[in-house]
């Protein structure tokens, strides 16, 4: 970025960069590394003591039925994949209409959707519980999937709008002329061209629902539908002292796929994030 004019400045800058880079690396990674170390350690108080490595915590969390961790994982994956997938599909239809067909009140609809994403979760949580309870869906997958779809729809919608508006409208028009209905145009022309955008959106939607906490806390009671974040948050030891090794092992198992996703699809995620934010 900076092309420096003097040698002194250049040296200073290189130094600053090295210091900044190391600082950033420590800041970003230290907690994660500590998590991993604790998960693999015999005892949590290894700092200043001998470090004895073990995989016992991992075995314990995965094989102890009373901990329900595997079940939490299944719940989380099923709920997040379903919510993210359904939301992306539904939102893409809406975003397509919003970018292509000027209808009356379009601005109002877009603004409403945008403002919905600004609502603090606590303003929704109370009555959301009552609605879901009235429908008899507390502590079920569907009881979380439906609120999640509603909750990530605005963001998904906005990200997709920014992707769709980049596809030249003349392509749609050509498809109409060639005999396509709007739905067919969406599926055969817009979807393939927006595939990277759809993928980014799907990833973001997945991460958001996978990480969500408050709704999952309120709308689930036990392992029937409880998600991993809530499960880990409510994890209590049997004998007062918290089983840190086990908790961290669970955290490592949970974060590993998320981190892998973040590293693999870094570009997609960053693009989707900035679009959602800057557009809004």
């Amino acid at each position: 970025m900076f092309v420096l004019s003097t040698a002194g400045e250049r040296r200073l800058q290189r130094l600053l960069y090295a210091a900044g880079f190391c600082g950033a690396l420590f800041f970003l990674l230290a907690p994660v590394i500590f998590m991993l170390l604790t998960a693999l350690s015999q005892r949590p108080d290894f700092l200043g003591n001998n470090y004895v490595m073990t995989t016992r915590h991992f075995r314990e969390i995965l094989t102890t039925p009373s901990l329900h961790f595997v079940r939490y994982c299944i719940n989380s994956l099923a709920i997040s994949i379903a919510s993210a997938g359904i939301t992306t599909i539904i939102a893409s239809g809406g975003a397509y209409v919003a970018t292509r067909f000027p209808f009356k009140g379009r601005t109002a609809v877009l603004l409403m959707i945008l403002s919905l994403s600004m609502f603090p979760q606590i303003c929704i949580a109370g009555y959301l519980y009552r609605i879901i309870a009235a429908a008899g869906m507390v502590n079920t997958w569907l009881g979380l999937i439906l609120p999640y779809i509603a909750w990530i729809m605005p963001l998904t919608f906005w990200i997709l709008i920014s992707y769709f508006s980049q596809i030249p409208q003349e392509l749609d028009r050509a498809a109409f002329i060639d005999g396509c209905s709007p739905l067919r145009t969406l599926v055969t022309i817009v979807f393939p061209l927006a595939a990277p955008g759809l993928f980014s959106t799907l990833l973001l939607a997945f991460i958001f629902t996978f990480n969500e906490f408050m709704f999952a806390l309120i709308l689930t009671n036990d392992h029937a539908a409880r998600t991993v974040p809530v499960g880990i948050a409510l994890f209590q030891g049997l004998h007062g002292e918290l089983p840190w090794g086990v908790i961290m092992a669970a955290s490592v198992i949970t974060t590993l796929p998320v981190i892998l996703m973040a590293l693999l699809f870094q570009r997609h995620i960053m693009q989707g994030l900035t679009r959602g934010a800057i557009k809004g």
């Binding site: 994660v32 500590f34 998590m35 108080d45 991460i207 990480n211 974040p229 880990i232 961290m248 949970t254």
Partner: peptide, 26 residues
């Protein structure tokens, strides 16, 4: 790529990790 890690980790898990980091004794 690394910058995404803290962002991508569920806040609940981050909370647990930091709880451990802040542990008084060790």
């Amino acid at each position: 790529a690394l910058v995404l890690i803290p962002w991508a980790i569920p806040a609940a898990i981050a909370g647990r990790v930091w709880e451990l980091i802040y542990s008084y004794n060790w």
